[in-house]
Simulated assay, not measured.
Amino acid sequence: MGRGADVPDGRGRTGLDRVGRDLTGNPDVVVRDVEVTSDGWHVLRRTTYDRRRSDGTWTTESRETYDRGNGATVLLHDPDRGTVLLTRQFRFPAYVNGHPDGLLLEAAAGLLDADDPETAARRETEEELGVRIRGPLVQAFDAFMSPGSVTERLHCFVGRYSPADRVHDGGGVAAEGEDIEVVELPLAQALGMVDDGRIRDGKTIMLLQWLALRERAHRG
């Protein structure tokens, strides 16, 4: 036991070691132990479980999972002008792993916190892009972005915008240290930037390709 288990961690949380112990959806997996190995802003756990393999034999496995909560992302598209609205921001994990400057072009995104996915998508769009979405959002898909180690489930939306929907300059929440540039591009140019590697963020690539396929289907 320890911080985040029976003793509150830095964010006042307890019971972090109980996540996963009550899973019953897969009879071939029995959780034996959950250990909190890091209780920073997000949570790292080591879970030990028994798993029945496809040949019927049982094996004991241990896996680390990084729990940062679930998120929502939204690609804004102006069909009248053929443009999309993206963010550019510094991502140290990308920078330390070979990206030239760590500045990634991305669809607006954020953690759900206490909100439902659509509410979170609208919140992040207004905070990061300065756009208040007045119409409906289409949920394109949701996806586990790195299921080998990260628990996050990302809810992916596409929405329409126009210049009249801008309510401020965007840029993110300064109090949270966000320093975000708003970038408007023709959809065709954004797709070309996927091809040549200038757009390398996974969720953004998926949403751009989803939108391109939908546009092609409507034209056909």
Rank of each mutant, 00 (worst) to 15 (best):
L185Y: 02
D179F: 02
A188G: 03
D113S: 11
E61A: 03
S54L: 13
L86I: 02
G98Q: 09
A94P: 10
D165P: 04
Q89V: 11
L185P: 03
L111Q: 04
A190N: 06
G159F: 01
D169R: 15
G25I: 11
R81A: 15
G110T: 12
T119R: 00
R63G: 03
I133M: 12
E35R: 15
G71Y: 01
A120C: 01
R122A: 02
W58Y: 05
N97W: 04
R123Q: 01
G12L: 08
L104K: 10
A108K: 07
I205T: 09
R81E: 13
G10V: 12
L86D: 10
L207T: 01
P186N: 15
V30T: 07
G170F: 09
V167K: 04
R214P: 13
R52Q: 09
P136T: 05
M206T: 13
A108Q: 09
T151L: 13
L103M: 09
P136K: 07
L137R: 09
T60M: 09
R18I: 04
H42N: 14
V36D: 15
R81Q: 14
K203D: 07
L86F: 00
L213H: 15
G40H: 08
D17T: 08
R11C: 01
M145L: 14
G71R: 05
Q189D: 06
G10Q: 11
E35M: 02
P117M: 05
I180K: 06
T119G: 04
D101C: 07
E118G: 06
A72K: 06
H99A: 01
L211S: 12
A188L: 04
H42I: 13
T119N: 05
A94M: 12
S162E: 14
D28R: 11
N70C: 13
N26R: 12
E178C: 00
L111G: 11
R132E: 06
E152L: 02
D67I: 09
Q89L: 08
A5F: 09
A143T: 14
G197V: 04
S38D: 15
A174E: 05
A140W: 11
V194P: 01
W58Q: 01
D116M: 04
D113Q: 15
L75E: 04
D6G: 13
Q209E: 14
V7P: 08
G12A: 13
A121Q: 06
G20N: 05
A140P: 08
E184W: 05
V19D: 02
M206I: 13
G12N: 11
R18V: 14
H218R: 15
R51I: 15
R63V: 04
P93S: 08
N70A: 12
L104I: 10
H218V: 14
V194S: 10
V194L: 00
E215T: 12
L129P: 00
R91I: 02
A140F: 10
L154V: 06
L103I: 03
Q89F: 03
V74A: 11
M145P: 13
T65Y: 09
G71N: 03
P93K: 12
Q209Y: 00
V158L: 08
W58V: 07
